[in-house]
Design a protein around this nucleic acid. Structure first.
Lengths: 199, 199
DNA sequence: TTATTTTTGTATCACTCACTACAAAATCCT
DNA sequence: AGGATTTTGTAGTGAGTGATACAAAAATAA
């Protein structure tokens, strides 16, 4: 019988749960940022020593990249639902920004981990990783928007990303959920008005 | 006759222009952020040695604070004009966001130095300084808005600050001036619609 | 058992960080 | 001139960074 463990490797078994550690690290990176979280902080929080850390994750940067992708999977916005085919673009954007307001509000770490990580950091490589993920998100959103309104896809995608950044920053500054929702609604109304009036 | 020099001090004269150095440092902090700019970077850029640096500015943090205030004075938005008494609030916000779009577009450093500095950094004290300046700006803007529409001052101030953050982030990501202006216009339209329709 | 493989803990590594001790140099005051 | 004061350049401080060398420990494979 093959055992439940996925990997029955050969050497000494790892004394900690890698996925659990990744989850913890993701939250910490989200809360403190790449520069604000040292490897010493991480190893202490995970209860492991540096060699175990590097054996498991390779480097701080590699772990950060994994954490970014985990964040997208576990806490990413439900773009498919908000921008489902057939939805009028204004309604879709309204829904998407509402999702963002709810997701970015402070429960533990605030704001969007990708957007906040994409701004200039001391380590330029970390910023590059976050920026790459952000660009991927923008491309995905744009793709979904094209289905709804091909003519305004670039503009709407830019506006959505800008609104995300504004909401994320406001959330980081302590704006409560309710207010964030109002802000998201006003921002969405702007695009609605622009699309209906100005063509 | 008293000489043109403001300070005819006693000891050995300073070999560099302090104001000039502050101006350079302000631009560098704006471009690279507090964490991304080391004292070694600064002393090299200014052509001075660390002791001269510390004698003139006290510490990296103190210089950063001076740089923030200098930025406000030299590159701050003309809030008084945009929100001059008698201006309808929607028109005032439209003007103010337009100013921001123009100011944040990339000519050398992009985005708003205060807003970008207010996000979490490795050194929490530097973030505190920037956040303090940002809060001061918010308070000033709110004060001006109160004159135009007292009922919606807090909401409008929050929305303006959020829009600033969004515009600043977009500028940092390379959005050209023209597009930033369009984004600012759409965002302003949102508040206009909200204020006229929803009360 | 014996060999092989992988992880573990201890104890660092070289490097960068913000910052300074110290004495020579350059100015003003008397 | 001679004393007082401030800045200068040289050199280096301790603390913190990300990342490792090394050998003992713990598992499987033969």
């Amino acid at each position: 019988m093959s055992d439940t463990k996925i990997t029955a490797k050969r050497g000494r078994p790892r004394a900690f749960d890698r996925d659990e550690a990744l989850a913890k690290a993701q939250v910490l990176f989200h809360a403190k940022g790449y520069d604000g979280l040292s490897v010493a902080d991480l190893t202490q929080a995970l209860g492991i020593n540096p060699p175990s850390f590097y054996a498991a994750f390779g480097s701080k940067l590699a772990l950060y990249d994994e954490a970014l992708r985990r964040y997208e999977k576990t806490e990413g916005l439900d773009v498919d639902t908000a921008l489902a085919p057939g939805t009028p673009l204004p309604a879709g954007v309204t829904k998407l920004l509402r999702y963002a307001a709810d997701a970015y509000a402070c429960d533990g770490p605030c704001g969007c981990m990708v957007i906040e990580g994409a701004r200039g950091t001391a380590d330029p490589e970390a910023g590059d990783r976050a920026r790459a993920r952000m660009e991927a998100s923008r491309a995905y959103i744009r793709e979904k928007i094209v289905v709804l309104d091909a003519n305004n896809a670039d503009l709407a995608a830019d506006y959505v990303m800008m609104s995300f950044a504004g909401l994320s920053a406001s959330a980081r500054n302590g704006m409560p959920t309710q207010r964030l929702r109002v802000m998201a609604g006003i921002a969405a109304e702007g695009l609605s008005a622009y699309l209906t009036s100005g063509r």
